[in-house]
Simulated assay, not measured.
Amino acid sequence: MSRARIRPATGAVLAALAALALGTLPAPALAVAPAAGPAPAAQRHLGEEIRQVPLVGAVNVRDVGGYRTYGGDTVRHGQVYRADALSKLTDADVVTLSRLGLKKVVDYRVPVEVQYDGVDRLPAGLTPVSRPVTDNGLFTQLLTVIGSRDPVKQEEMLGGGRAAAFMREVYRTFVTSPENRARFGATLRDIADSDRDAPLLYHCTSGKDRTGWTSYLLLRALGVPSQTAERDYLASNTYRAAYDAKVRAGLKQAGLMQNPDLLIPLQEVRTDYLRSALDRVAADYGGLHHYLGKGLGLDLRTIAKLQARLLR
């Protein structure tokens, strides 16, 4: 499809991309910006609680602390935060964010996401560190296929398990791409090297895939059991569910998709996506320990610094 033919639909198409694993959403486009209201109930398991930071302009902002390790330590609260895009925060949200005392914000979005969604809205004195992790061309492909308004093309691209297969491949590139490994490793080193009470936040667009992988790696490096780290990863489905459903409804209402449920595999996190990355870790490195060391460049001293900084 030529650029000229899809141009009239571009504004609405961009709204669709908030629903996607690596897309973006200009808030006014389909009138589905995150709405104020009660946050999803805190998730509790064996005394552990996932702490959401309730904001109007972002739905998946969470404290990574509170989890217990195999050794009986607890990950400290108020030190590391994970988030979705921060470009649509309200003034009140920025005030709430300022209370976290953040010293660094890492943005995993690729340039085209930032271009269409906007730069982060952050408290005074904070400038995000751009550390883009590739989207494997997802944004451009979806811009074209959704902009076509053609249900046959959309089914051909996303149906029959193809959307889920694409996501599994995205997760594999978290392991196979040297650039991606360098950026994940740099974020974990930032956490290890920062002062004891210098909170850091990392985010992508939906706060679930690039951000979810970082969080999983961090928790495992700290000695948190795999089941617990996976539960933190899967919690994005709870915190994003209502918002993502509004995006799908908006797409149908705008006449862009007859079957917006084709997007669900791109909106969700799934155990098999995480498993795709972990299987690649096992195949390429023999296990997570060697991936952290050889793949991300985190030596034993860095792991020890992470544990000293974040465990109590």
Rank of each mutant, 00 (worst) to 15 (best):
T214Q: 12
S215Q: 04
S215A: 03
S215C: 11
Y216E: 03
Y216M: 03
Y216W: 09
L217P: 09
L217Q: 10
L217D: 02
L218G: 06
L218P: 01
L218F: 01
L218S: 10
L218T: 01
L219I: 09
L219G: 13
L219P: 11
L219H: 12
L219C: 04
L219K: 10
R220E: 00
R220F: 00
R220M: 10
A221W: 11
A221N: 05
A221P: 07
A221S: 05
A221M: 09
A221K: 14
A221T: 07
L222I: 05
L222F: 00
L222H: 05
L222P: 01
L222T: 00
L222R: 04
G223W: 14
G223Q: 12
G223K: 14
V224H: 02
V224F: 01
V224L: 05
V224P: 00
V224I: 03
P225T: 07
P225L: 07
P225C: 10
P225M: 10
P225E: 10
P225Y: 03
S226N: 09
S226C: 09
S226W: 08
S226H: 06
S226I: 12
S226D: 15
Q227E: 15
Q227S: 13
Q227D: 15
Q227I: 08
Q227C: 07
T228D: 13
T228H: 09
T228F: 06
A229Q: 04
A229W: 03
A229Y: 07
A229H: 12
A229D: 07
E230V: 13
R231Q: 03
R231V: 04
R231M: 14
R231I: 08
D232Q: 15
D232E: 15
D232P: 04
D232R: 07
D232V: 14
Y233V: 05
Y233T: 09
Y233P: 12
L234H: 02
L234V: 11
L234F: 01
L234A: 01
L234G: 12
L234K: 02
A235N: 15
A235R: 14
A235K: 10
A235V: 14
S236W: 04
S236E: 00
N237G: 06
N237R: 08
T238E: 08
T238P: 08
T238L: 06
T238N: 03
Y239P: 01
Y239R: 01
R240P: 06
R240V: 09
R240K: 14
R240F: 03
R240T: 11
R240I: 10
A241K: 03
A241D: 14
A241W: 09
A242L: 06
A242P: 07
A242I: 02
A242K: 05
Y243A: 11
Y243H: 15
Y243T: 05
Y243P: 06
D244P: 06
D244C: 11
A245F: 11
A245V: 14
A245K: 13
A245R: 08
A245Q: 15
K246V: 04
K246E: 12
K246Q: 14
K246H: 04
K246L: 13
V247A: 08
V247T: 11
V247Q: 06
V247F: 12
R248D: 01
R248F: 03
A249F: 02
A249C: 11
A249R: 15
